[in-house]
Computed example of a mutant assay.
Amino acid sequence: MSNVELLEEHRVFDGVQYKYRHSSELLDCPMTFSLFLPNKEKFPEPSLLWWLSGLTCNDDNFTHKAGAQRAAARLGIAMVMPDTSPRGKEIADSTDYDLGQGAGFYLNATKEPWAAHYKMYDYIIEELTAVVRNEFDLTGPEFISGHSMGGHGALVLGLRNPERFQSITAFAPIVNPTQVPWGIKAFENYIGDDKKLWAEWDAVELMKHYSGKEIPILIDQGDADPFYKKELEPFKLVEVAQEKNYPLTVRMQSGHDHSYYTISTFIEEHLEFHVNALQNNTSKE
């Protein structure tokens, strides 16, 4: 019997936006996720975008603010939006916005008190994937995208699973978390002091040693983003990609900040990037 509980259902453009809750055995707590499905008659086997949100967010932020459903309905893309961390009264937390609930960093914590519940990498790659495939029969080609902390997650999950994801896009991602305050704080708490383990969750470090399938990557970064130079610095990833001759595009967007106004401006182009990458990959096979 399914343990997926429907919380919300909204008709939007030529599709339906859902919100669900399920009991996560891996995280040992209830978890919510949102799911957009395009018109089933037009797209009986849609491709699937995984969207990973940033610090302080949950699965609602992208659903409510990005305006992605219009383009997803047109392009035949289903979208799944996980929460950003385990949640609940019994779950370890912090009074700081950039640690604990709402700040899972899409890794598997190994240090207490976080290790008991903070396994967001395995949750997305294994448990929620099984739910999405089994409950909703979403077994088509997959893409991954995200914003800020979620951009970090999209890059890391994509580069660690090149056989699975067709393409990666990100808005203002934390590309080199081992070297910036947000990432250092998270890794020290979640993983401990072993910098070799940190490198497993850092897109720049993964790119340095990458030898898998070259997944096309698109990054948009606003030049009015207050976190641009202190926390994000996408050109650290550009330098490594150029050395590896890796297909990475970084676009600086004039006047744009770190908000969902920027995401809503360019999200359609990101979805089109994924579709084009899929078509290119298919034509090469």
Rank of each mutant, 00 (worst) to 15 (best):
I91N: 08
A109T: 06
Y190G: 12
V131A: 00
E112T: 04
T56I: 11
V204Q: 08
Y20V: 00
L27H: 04
A66M: 04
G54D: 06
Y190Q: 08
T249C: 04
G151I: 11
Y18R: 07
I144K: 06
S283D: 05
N108D: 15
G102T: 05
E200T: 03
T95G: 07
Y260G: 05
E126T: 13
P181M: 09
E135P: 01
Q101K: 14
A71V: 14
L128P: 01
L27D: 03
Y20T: 00
A73H: 00
N189R: 09
T110N: 02
G150A: 06
G150T: 06
L75Q: 08
A73Q: 02
A130T: 13
C57N: 15
R160I: 02
I215H: 01
Q166M: 12
H256T: 05
V275Q: 11
L52H: 08
T249F: 05
A170L: 08
I184Q: 13
I219Q: 07
Y121M: 04
N276T: 14
D14R: 13
Q166G: 03
V12N: 05
P247L: 05
V175P: 01
R87E: 10
N280W: 04
H209N: 14
H22F: 15
I168A: 06
E9P: 00
P44Y: 10
Q242G: 14
A241M: 11
K229Y: 08
I144A: 05
S34N: 12
E205V: 03
I174S: 10
T56E: 15
T129F: 01
Y118R: 13
P30T: 02
P141Y: 01
F266T: 04
I217K: 09
L6I: 10
T84L: 02
D28R: 08
